[in-house]
């Protein structure tokens, strides 16, 4: 397995106000697999994503990525782990306001030794004409595409997407999902996407439903539906 998640537990607060957010999550993903984490607000899906991404820590359990366990990594090693293996896409685009589209993507490329060609990626993302613009000159969809470019250009082993379409309209959301799908197919990255949009589950290889910090069920789709065909 490329990614193994064993008995991950996480709680916030102490005493009476202690809340168990993750109650022992087990999950295994193959390289190139597209996984959707589904669940209502507070189910623990974003927390799990952040722990996989090394920006949050588990109270117990272990995550092993490509044979490398994360649990005893110090801050610097975690940073290097993120740098080498991960790409992040958030609901908010968090672009650097005074860098152009191209430069924002180059920020991601700077971190990788196996970076993709920026020009090609710009074309793939449909941002070629906008490459010289700064984020404030772009629409929400264009900004999110730039954010995807920034994450993908690293050619990361795992692409972590936290509600990437949460702030977008239907049409733009579909465009973004198509793009992620295309990236997955083109570059073979493992993708873990957090969403509360039930329709998105059909485009995944594996769908993990979470409720109250535990996995309710894990479904392996026989056939992935293309993003184009999704309706909600």
């Amino acid at each position: 397995m490329f990614l193994e998640i064993n008995q991950i537990k996480k709680a916030f607060g102490q005493g009476d106000s202690r809340v168990e957010v993750l109650r022992g999550i087990d999950l295994s993903l193959e390289k190139g697999e597209f996984c959707v984490l589904l669940g209502p607000s507070g189910s623990g899906k974003s927390t799990l994503l952040n722990i996989i991404g090394g920006i949050d820590s588990a109270d117990s359990g272990e995550i092993v990525i490509d044979g490398e366990p994360m649990s005893h990594m110090k801050e610097k090693q975690l940073t290097m782990y993120r740098r080498r293996h991960l790409g992040y896409i958030f609901q908010m685009y968090n672009l650097i306001p005074n860098l152009t589209v191209r430069e924002n993507i180059e920020v991601g490329a700077y971190l990788s030794n196996k970076a993709l060609d920026v020009d090609e990626l710009l074309k793939l993302l449909g941002l070629w004409e906008h490459r010289g613009k700064v984020p404030s000159q772009l629409s929400g969809g264009q900004q999110q595409r730039t954010a995807i470019g920034r994450a993908v250009v690293k050619n990361p082993d795992i692409l972590l997407c936290d509600e990437p379409t949460g702030a977008l309209d239907y049409k733009t959301s579909k465009e973004i999902l198509k793009l992620i799908e295309q990236v997955n197919k083109t570059y073979g990255n493992t993708i873990i996407m957090v969403t509360h949009n039930d329709a998105i589950k059909y485009m995944a290889d594996t769908v993990v439903r979470l409720r109250d910090g535990a996995i309710r069920d894990t479904v392996h789709n026989e056939r992935r539906v293309s993003a184009e065909e999704l309706e909600w």
């Binding site: 920006i55 290097m80 993120r82 992040y88 991601g108 920034r150």
Partner: peptide, 10 residues
């Protein structure tokens, strides 16, 4: 936060 998440060091 995003830059740090992407792997920029402190």
């Amino acid at each position: 936060g995003t830059l740090r998440a992407m792997g920029f060091t402190k």
